[in-house]
Design a protein around this nucleic acid. Structure first.
Length: 435
RNA sequence: UCCUCGGUAGCUCAAUUGGCAGAGCAAUCGGCUGUUAACCGAUGGGUUGCAGGUUCGAGUCCUGCCCGAGGAGCCA
């Protein structure tokens, strides 16, 4: 490879038509008709077909083809040639080739595999086109999330991962020893800290991993997942819902614009995403219960909505639906009660369409000191670890609201997947913490 | 934690009423000048999840255990 030959990523090949370039990557697949070899090389930016015709390249280079195995690493030099028969539209006519490493018996073949096998080889599975597309969309979603809040004057104030106590008092937490200070727990939400930050900055968000030690075993659960949690001072429940719908619209429409290629590879029906625009329907809990009853569900008023209940409600609409004013009995202690209906909270869940379920949970927070003390007692929560949280209601308490959006569930919905496990590079689930 | 289903070659699966464990892909070797999960021919490849039991004979039936998948509850 002469120094004058440019090294390029496969995605940029079209800029080099009829020019000689070098690409570096991994063997995705190869085919041969004896005197003409086809080598598919991927480099993370795309896949390029490289062609070698006998008698047009040196015997050394032509013979190298036989040694190449799936996922061997190579540097290929050749002339870029526009050809509709090539995947991607451009192919490389091989002039020179260097093998960097020969892979032996790569386990993931271009044929079918089962979930367990693929999960055991997650570190290699990431190389396949489908996983590449999903994780690319995840990246775009996260970028759109940050962009949305950054452009609206929010400040990123991240919350601690090691915490002294439960945020909601209900979930089971991962526990660890913390030097001489006793037990510490992996956070299940950054919200309480975000509330403190909102009193300092006005509008904040935190974005990080959260942990749930519950033994949930469904396609919607991970034990470690990422959550973005905005918190806004002076915002009431309606402001919170306004923010949530604008936020989701921005994320979905941005991904539609930027990731058309990946969505196509995933065979996602984008006509299901295109209608995701404001305003979203808003349903009072009472109305949601009416819908369930009309659909023949024997629903006990006062209960939380179950997975199938959410599906029935979300299927009534072509965009996410916001269900608000859930009963206090099924919601967290920090949520403010409705003044006229103290059995209900100023809460909202956003349900994704097509039965993808809850992607956002939010609320207006209890801002009255005495009411919050009472809530802690009602929930049998220790007061000591929450003393700082109560301080926020002692020194200039204001109405404030926020919500949390689960990144993996959002990726699952936007990509149209049937399981969250493919939406995070290395999923952590009840029966898996490897690789 | 509970309910349901599953575990056979490296991978995906088949095996009739309990009767010689098989196929495709992958691997190896050979053929093919435009392939698209290329194709054609040949070869090698097995502790049927583990431990017991019934039987002349168990992948198949029985008991226990292990592992996995889906769902419920709970949640994002």
């Amino acid at each position: 490879m002469s120094e004058s030959i440019p090294v390029t990523m496969i995605a940029q090949l079209s800029d080099f038509n009829d020019k000689t370039v070098t690409i570096r990557g991994w063997v995705y697949n190869k085919r041969s008709s004896g005197k003409i070899h086809f080598l598919l090389v991927r480099d993370g930016s795309g896949v390029a077909q490289c062609v070698a015709v006998k008698n047009q390249v040196s015997p050394d280079v032509f013979g190298m083809f036989d040694l190449l195995t799936q996922e061997s690493s190579v540097a290929v030099t050749g002339k870029v040639h526009k050809d509709d028969r090539a995947p991607g539209g451009y192919e490389l006519q091989i002039e020179d080739m260097k093998t960097v490493h020969i892979a032996k018996d790569y386990p993931i073949t271009p044929k079918e595999h089962g979930t367990e096998f693929l999960m055991d080889h997650r570190h290699l599975w990431l190389r396949s086109s489908r996983q590449h597309a999903i994780l690319t969309i995840r990246h775009r979603i996260i970028k759109a999330v940050r962009e949305f809040f950054d452009n609206k004057g929010f400040t990123l104030v991240d919350s601690p991962i090691l915490t002294p106590a439960s945020v909601e008092g209900t979930s089971t937490l991962f526990e660890t020893e913390y030097f001489d200070l006793g037990k510490a727990y992996l956070t299940q939400s950054g919200q309480l800290y975000a509330e403190a930050a909102a009193m300092a900055f006005g509008k904040v968000y935190c974005f990080g991993p959260t942990f749930r030690a519950e033994k949930s075993k469904t396609r919607r659960h991970l034990t470690e997942f990422w959550m973005v949690e905005p918190e806004v001072a002076w915002a009431d429940l309606n402001d919170d819902m306004d923010l949530a719908e604008e936020f989701i619209e921005h994320v979905v429409q941005t991904v539609l614009r930027q990731s058309a290629e990946e969505l196509k590879l995933l065979e996602r029906d984008v006509t299901k995403l295109q209608p995701v625009k404001r305003p979203f329907p808003r349903l009072h809990y009472d109305e949601a219960v009416e819908i369930l009853k009309k659909n023949g569900v024997e629903f006990q008023y006062g209960n939380d909505l179950g997975g199938t209940d959410e599906t029935i409600i979300s299927q009534q609409y072509d965009r996410p639906v916001m269900v608000h004013h859930y009963p206090a009995a099924c919601k967290a202690f920090y949520m403010k009660r409705d003044a006229g209906r103290p059995d209900l909270t100023l809460s909202v869940d956003v349900l994704a369409p097509e039965g993808y379920g809850e992607i956002i949970g939010g609320s207006q927070r209890e801002d009255d000191y005495d009411a919050l003390v009472k809530r802690l007692e009602e929930n049998n929560l220790p007061r000591d670890p929450f003393e700082w949280y109560l301080d926020l209601r002692k020194y200039g308490s204001v109405p404030h609201s926020g919500f949390g959006l689960g990144i993996e569930r959002t990726v699952t919905w936007i990509c149209g997947l049937d399981h969250v496990r493919e939406t995070i590079p290395f999923p952590r689930m009840i029966y898996r913490n490897t690789p």
